[in-house]
């Protein structure tokens, strides 16, 4: 996994609440057995019309948001299905940071496993960024170590991410590799439990 220490990028806005993972990546694209190549299907039913042409009304299709790597969205982003294809699609499309007032649990978790940082800011701050992101070329800089978001023009905010996850992001660690260092503890736990019947 690519470490994420500091990131500066263009901001796109998606001013909708309860964006579910079925919208982020519709089910017809879940049949692949690879992790890559999902970006082309991101928000498919919103980005494209039924005939396959680009839907110019959809927020992310506005030319000013082309190349954006930071997404600002409404509350409860990523609700619904546990499909990790959702963060895979966001990442493959180019997003490394998602800012929202709240996230659904499974999606939030899945983001970290793929080097995407979901940032929770207050509703007022998100509203603020939604306004600012109307201006073409609006950029933010995120410092994962210091847990700050700034636009370099006076707008600054801080966020919090638990240390464990932050460390994984900063170092781009392989979580399974980390866990396997606890092999002895896992084996001991299994031995103890299986000697105690009934096992609960």
């Amino acid at each position: 996994m690519e470490p994420l220490v500091r990131h500066r990028g263009k901001v796109a806005r998606l001013n909708r609440v309860n964006v579910d993972t079925d919208q982020i990546i519709p089910k017809q694209f879940l049949k692949r057995v690879e992790r890559s190549g999902f970006g082309q299907f991101l928000f498919y039913d919103w980005r494209f019309r039924p005939d396959g042409s680009i839907n110019p009304e959809f927020e992310l299709n506005q030319p000013q948001y082309s190349g954006a790597s930071i997404l600002v969205a409404g509350a409860n982003f990523g609700c619904g299905s546990s499909r990790e294809h959702a963060p895979w699609a966001l990442l493959d499309y180019g997003f490394r940071i998602i800012i929202a007032p709240s996230f659904a649990d499974i999606f939030y978790n899945n983001c970290f496993k793929n080097g995407i940082l979901p940032i929770v800011l207050s509703q007022a701050e998100v509203d603020d960024l939604m306004e600012k992101a109307l201006a073409p070329g609006y950029e933010l800089e995120v410092d994962v170590e210091r847990q700050t978001v700034t636009d370099g023009h006076g707008w600054v905010s801080t966020f919090s991410v638990d240390e464990f996850r932050r460390n994984m992001l900063l170092k781009g660690l392989d979580e399974i590799g980390l866990t396997l260092q606890y092999e002895a503890a896992i084996a001991e736990y299994e031995r103890k439990r299986e000697s105690l019947q009934p096992v609960l």
Binding site: S82, R83, K113, N114, E175, I176, T179, I186, E190
Partner: peptide, 16 residues
Amino acid sequence: IGTSEVEHVLATQCLW
């Protein structure tokens, strides 16, 4: 859980 966690459970039978 997501697919990365599926892999994690397959390999370790545990989750953080």
